[in-house]
Amino acid sequence: MRIGVVTFPGSLDDVDAARAVRLAGGEVVPLWHADADLPAVDAVVLPGGFSYGDYLRAGAIAARQPLMRAVVDRAHAGMPVLGICNGFQVLCEAGLLPGALTRNGHLHFRNRDQALLVERADTAWTSSYAQGQTIVVPVKNGEGRYVGSDADLDRLEGEGRVVVRYAGGNPNGSSRDIAGVTSADGRVVGLMPHPEHAVEELTGPSVDGLGFFTSVLEGVLS
């Protein structure tokens, strides 16, 4: 299965996302932000980093790059898209996911091993997990505080679109401990924590993150 990993200027975890895809058994297709055409891929990962230095707003400039138009079109047609950290910010800026990511409440960058509660185990990116499962993956961000109006958050929760929630402490002040959300069709997922940093026992706090990548491969295969 061919999984595209996009590199924007300032993307940092593109190498890590590609490694995670490979370890899960997928074929990596490197994608360049300035290309207008999206080659034949089965899914796309928008990696973490500081695209365009987080200037203007985190993810705002990346969301308007040529390749993103094609990604948005294909996502509307049902292609699975995963946005990690800066990728989540890009998805919100591109209008594929609701809400916004703002400066952490305490104004500090925060890198720690974070427990997450999986609330949706039926999206394109979380089907390898069990609903209610707790996983540990690194979180690392300076602008990861998920916010939305109370009405929007009520609606999101009502529709069951919170995919993962922070457990055992909220690292950045996100509303209602929300760590990741999904689109209405469950094909697009964005989260601030980094599953691609928890795919090898040697380098991560766990291998709990691998499930995001095996999920989409199994989904595409079936």
Binding site: G95, P98, G99, A100, T102, N104, G105, H106, L107, H108, R110, R145, V147, G148, S149, D150, D152, L153, G169, N170, N172, G173, S175, R176
Partner: peptide, 17 residues
């Protein structure tokens, strides 16, 4: 204590679409 400050941040402070 940065985490103490987080608790003081009002939820839903930024309206979205």
């Amino acid at each position: 204590h940065p985490e103490d400050v987080v608790g003081a941040v009002p939820t839903g402070a930024v309206p979205t679409s």
